[in-house]
């Protein structure tokens, strides 16, 4: 359960103050798949970075399972990212000189999981995201875009997070591969009971999520749906 309360983030740009996120409030139930759509520069990524504790809000708060992020010191925020958040990026952001398995094992290493256990779990996760076993030990800069994104999703799942934040996960992929990734995310949210929030400007992707928010000039509005997506 994630509760966002009146979140504001402002930057100084020259002598102007810009507010890409200006008073955003919403709640997400556990295990739901939601999307945030908006034009480029509408503040989607800023909102995502605030939810993932990559950045600190100017005001407002994010409460995850009753724990408020606003008052947490940097060390605790690192722990929050490690334990409760999984990131999937448009640019994949894998470590290029490490193998797929090593990339998936990385968050578990930071969490102090023993080597044998993290190797086994990494292999299981890579199977879940349907990466060929022969490619498990291949360096990630030698994998295709779709394969890299699968590895990134497996990495995001490594520490069984409460929330997966995906920033344009299909942005660098062709349509068909993008659909596979969306299906994968969708089934993961069902199977793992994980909350997934996808930021996208892809309307067709947004259509497939349970809830869809629209971010416009720093304000969030929920699009009301008729009928179920599933």
């Amino acid at each position: 359960m994630i509760v966002v309360k009146d979140l504001v983030r402002q930057f100084k740009s020259g002598d102007r103050t810009i507010k890409p996120v200006n008073g955003v409030s919403f709640e997400l139930e556990k295990g739901s798949l939601a999307s945030i759509v908006g034009k480029s520069g509408s503040g989607k990524s800023t909102l995502l970075s605030l939810l993932g504790a990559l950045d600190k809000p100017t005001s407002g708060d994010v409460v995850v399972d009753g724990v408020s992020l606003a008052g947490l010191p940097d060390g605790k925020l690192t722990e929050y990212r490690r334990r409760d958040i999984g990131f999937v990026f448009q640019q994949f952001n894998l470590i290029p000189n490490l193998s797929a398995v090593d990339n998936v094992m990385l968050p578990m290493e930071f969490a102090g999981v023993r080597k044998a256990a993290r190797l086994q779990r990494a292999k299981e996760l890579l199977e879940q995201v349907q990466l060929d076993p022969e490619k498990h030990s291949r360096r990630t800069n030698r994998l295709s875009g779709g394969e890299q994104q699968r590895v990134a999703i497996a990495r995001a799942l490594a520490n069984e997070p409460k929330l997966i934040l995906a920033d344009e996960p299909t942005g660098n992929l062709d349509e068909q591969t993008g659909e596979h990734i969306i299906e994968l995310l969708s089934s993961l949210s069902r199977d793992h009971n994980t909350t997934i929030l996808v930021v996208t400007h892809d309307r067709s992707l947004a259509q497939k999520t349970e809830r869809c928010f629209r971010l416009q000039q720093g304000k969030l509005t929920e699009e009301v749906r008729t009928g179920s997506r599933r």
Partner: peptide
């Protein structure tokens, strides 16, 4: 820089 950002995003401590 970016890679360091990735490591931090997935929960690496500064000292690590």
């Amino acid at each position: 820089r970016r890679e360091i950002g990735v490591l931090k995003a997935i929960g690496a401590r500064n000292r690590t």
